[in-house]
């Protein structure tokens, strides 16, 4: 297993996580559904997690893996709060479209 991880060149991990991150950014910017946007945020977080783990293995240093656990905890908390907000918004405007939440403006 360890070998399998190392046998893949490090560049590929970088490319993959960059790709995932960009997909996440694009999703956040261009999707309309709030739930999808939330999922895209998760995608970005996970792409970073992948990067951290790969660097950790590459540098033979466990710090990066410890960070990943923190990110996962924060992401879980964020999802809990985010979903709760979405539910409460849905109850008010009966929609999860991001453009239905435009009332907070000048």
């Amino acid at each position: 297993m360890e070998n399998a991880l190392v046998s893949v060149p490090h560049n590929w991990y970088l490319l993959l996580s960059s790709l995932l991150f960009c997909i996440g950014v694009m999703g956040v910017l261009f999707r309309r559904n709030v739930i999808v946007i939330l999922m895209c945020i998760e995608l970005m977080l996970n792409s970073v997690n992948l990067l951290l783990v790969s660097f950790s293995a590459y540098a033979q240093n466990a710090d990066g893996q410890v960070f990943v656990f923190f990110v996962m905890v924060v992401a879980a908390a964020e999802v809990a709060v985010g979903l709760a907000l979405i539910v409460s918004i849905y109850r008010n405007v009966a929609s999860t479209d991001i453009d239905s939440m435009k009332k907070l403006k000048w």
Binding site: L29, I98, D99, M101, K102, L104, K105
Partner: peptide, 17 residues
């Protein structure tokens, strides 16, 4: 400056990125 407060979350996200 308040004109920037459009209320559109997408715009805020774009600005952030």
């Amino acid at each position: 400056l308040r004109l920037m407060q459009t209320g559109s979350t997408t715009f805020y996200l774009l600005a952030m990125v």
